[in-house]
Structures are given as structure tokens and as C-alpha cells.
Design a protein around this nucleic acid. Structure first.
Ligand SMILES: [Mn+2]
Ligand SMILES: [Mn+2]
Ligand SMILES: [Mn+2]
Ligand SMILES: [Mn+2]
Lengths: 217, 217
DNA sequence: AACAAAAATTAGGCAAGCCAAATTTTTCTG
DNA sequence: CAGAAAAATTTGGCTTGCCTAATTTTTGTT
């Protein structure tokens, strides 16, 4: 019933909804790199199967059944990413593509073994919360690094797993999940943010800062 | 190019060939649990793609390209089975179904990490040789337990991974890969084989003995 | 050799997923 | 409020992978 394509569509709709965007045909098509015609067709199927409600010419919302499938797939994706990093030693910037495939192939039995093996983790390698078996998920209550007031002490909480290039950059400057730092100040007119990590000083561009979620402490 | 279905067909043809059987439409259909019509259709496609040569109304043989794909898929299957047993602690009787799916989903990168992580293993949990990256594979030079002469000292070498029930039985009597034993004698008229493992005595039926490959030493 | 049974193939059809092109609906803009 | 642009849908078509039913070829049996 839940094919690879179905799960990827549902995940995409969930991602749009939880970032406050309307799950429109065009946005789904863009994210999945398929045509709008394909999305319209799939939406009809997902609606008939009870995963989404469809308002023609407007968009789609997940039903409880759809939300459950989204979270189950996300749990798989994030546990797999963590497993690949922790157990097999892959880098955080190279696990997303593998997880995108394996999330549809791993049985519940193997998944729960991985979960136990990893010590019932709560976050994936990019700081995203791993949904629980019952479909509950922790909210990420962070703020954008770009919104942090000067002088604030904080920790890196989350970065999107989608852009490998950006993840490699962050790794290269050693600015990874959990890193504690102080925001010294920000240069004016879109200049870099000056950050202190222990004894180390670091400059981060404003575009990068917008993509980093931090936890003020 | 190499889809799940293609890989499973090629693996099945390889298994038939290497057990000395003709890869006929009916035998492939039986093993994959599809109709002969489906097999005929797929065979045409595999022949057109250069994986097999087809002699109509007779059967099919792997080309070097097909053999290479078969061994690559077998390598994945067997490494995955070993990984599931060794790393995640699944039992040897419950890994086959998972491996049958994951063999088509795991990237070469992850596979080679698993290979290193496991210490470059040579055999899977059922004693089957794991093909090397270059497509070479060790021959299993064992004999059937049922063919072993009375009094011979030997070790369990290999059992098929296909029958979970049988694997659970072997595990329950602690007669697993590598177990050293002596064949005391065999009861006449299809009676059991009496086996000694250290101090322990064991009876094994003749049907079971035919399915166990051992290595006389 | 003749006929029946078994094996294999062909023909036609269906579902999933995708696409391009045409059409309809909504939204934007002057 | 037009008219144009953008968004969404419909239509028709393609591939993969499977099926059933009909047909052809091979094999086995008397
Ligand atoms: Mn990811
Ligand atoms: Mn996916
Ligand atoms: Mn197996
Ligand atoms: Mn398989």
C-alpha cells in the first residue's frame, strides 16, 4: 500500500505543512522534481486512499492517516541517517541520499533494532527530532542564528540535511550540532556575524546564519 | 538500469545455473512465484539488455554481464545478512527476507563500509561465500552430511538460507555453521544419523542430513 | 507415428508512475 | 474590469511489471 512514491509525496506534504506553507501542486512538484501533472495524478490517488484531503486548485492537507505515515517515514529516514553516521562512519553530508532510498526498504523489525542499538536516540545527525514509534514528535524550539541578539550565548541546534555543500562547509569550520558559542556582534550592512567558540573566533555570513537554528541558553 | 525485478531474475538464473539446473521458464517462474508469461516477457527484456542469452522453448544462460550483476547482487545480499546478524543481533533464520529487499536499496558506498566494518568477511551467516568486489567467488567444496562415511570427523559448512523453519530447528539443537562433530553411525532403513559434538549426542534425520553441507577434516 | 500433457510463448489487459501538450481556473496587473 | 500570466487539471501516451487466456512447440506415452 505505502509505496516509495507515496511515502515521498506524503513526506513532502508534511514538510510543507510543518513549515507553514500551503501544500500546493506546484510546490510539491518542485520539491520532488516531477511535473505538476504527475502531482495532480498522485494527489487524486492519495486522496482516494485517505491520506490527504484535496481542495482542487488550492492544495492538499494531510489526514491523521497521512500524518501518521509521514511521521513513520520520517522516523525511518532520521534513524537511518543517524545509524549511517554513528555506526558506519559516514559523514553527515553524505547520508541523506542513502536514507532517502533506505527509508522505504527497511522493515520495522530492523528499524527497531537500530533504534535500540543507537540507545533510543532523540535527534538525527542534523539535529532534527526523530519521531517516536507512537507518532509523536518533539518541537524544535530554536531561533535562527541570524535572529540572535549580539552577546547571546547559544548552541547549534539544527541544520537542514538537504544541502550537502553547506553541511561540508559547516563541518570544515567545525560548527556542528551541539557546538556552544557566543555571538560577539554582527558587521553592519549584511556583513558577517562574529562568533566565539571557546578561544576560537569565526565569521559566518548572514545567508548561512539564516539557515542555522540555535538554542539560546 | 538494474531494477529490483531484474536483479531478482538474474540472481535466480544464477542460482539455477550454479546448481547445475537448466534455467527454464518454468523453474524461474516457480522460484520467483510469478507466472511463466511474466518470465517469458522479462527474459526478452534481459536478453535485449545483454544480461542473458535466450534459446526459445529451452531456457536462458547468463552472459558475462549477467553473471557480474548476479554476483554483485549476491554480494549485497550476503553482506547484508551477515550485518543484520552480527551488528543488529537478528537471528540467522529471520534475515533473508530483509536482505532480499535491502540488496536492491543499499548504495555501493554503504555496502563497502559494512564490508570493512565486518572485517572483510568471507562467508555469510549460513556459510555461503560472499563474492568479492571483483566478482570472484569461492567454491564451496563440501559434501552432504548424508554422504559422509560413518566415523568421519567434520564441520558444518553451509545450509540454505531459504527455509527459516529448518534454520530454527538447527539453531535449537545447536548445530550451526562451524560446529565440529563426529558421525558415529547411521541407523538402517532411513533411520537417523547419530552425531557426537564434544560430549553431546545428537540424532539427525536423513532428510535434514541431505540439506546440510559439511567439510570433512 | 499419434495423441496427450507439459512447457513456452503470444495476445490483451491492468496498475503505478511518470511525461508533454492542451485546457481550465485562479490570480495578478494595468 | 479586462487581459495576461501563473497555477492546476485533463488528456493521451509511455515503460515496467505483473496477470489470464489462447496458442504454439516440445516432450512423453502408448
Ligand atoms: Mn535526510
Ligand atoms: Mn525517499
Ligand atoms: Mn538469503
Ligand atoms: Mn531481492
Amino acid at each position: 500500500m505505502a509505496t516509495t512514491a507515496n511515502e515521498d509525496y506524503i513526506k513532502t506534504i508534511y514538510a510543507l505543512e510543518s513549515s507553514g506553507q500551503r501544500a500546493s501542486t506546484s510546490r510539491i512538484a518542485q520539491r520532488l522534481d516531477v511535473t505538476m501533472a504527475s502531482v495532480t495524478g498522485k494527489i487524486k490517488h492519495l486522496a482516494a486512499a485517505g491520506y490527504v484531503r484535496h481542495t482542487p486548485y488550492y492544495g492538499v492537507t494531510l489526514t491523521p492517516k497521512g500524518r501518521k505515515l509521514a511521521l513513520h517515514t520520517l522516523r525511518r529516514h532520521r534513524l537511518i541517517e543517524l545509524f549511517l553516521v554513528k555506526t558506519l562512519g559516514l559523514r553527515w553530508d553524505e547520508v541523506h541520499a542513502d536514507a532517502e532510498v533506505l527509508e522505504h526498504a527497511i522493515s520495522d523489525k530492523v528499524l527497531e533494532r537500530m533504534y535500540e542499538y543507537l540507545g533510543r536516540p532523540e535527534f538525527d545527525p542534523h539535529g532534527a527530532p526523530i519521531p517516536a514509534e507512537d507518532g509523536s514528535i518533539k518541537e524544535l524550539t530554536g531561533v535562527r542564528l541570524s535572529d540572535l541578539p549580539s552577546g547571546a550565548r547559544s548552541r547549534v541546534l539544527h541544520v537542514s540535511d538537504a544541502d550537502g555543500e553547506f553541511l561540508r562547509y559547516l563541518a570544515s569550520i567545525d560548527f556542528t550540532i551541539g557546538t556552544a558559542f557566543t555571538l560577539r556582534d554582527r558587521a553592519p550592512y549584511g556583513g558577517p556575524l562574529r562568533i566565539r567558540i571557546g578561544r576560537r573566533e569565526l565569521d559566518i555570513g548572514p545567508d548561512a546564519a539564516e539557515r542555522i537554528l540555535v538554542c539560546p541558553s
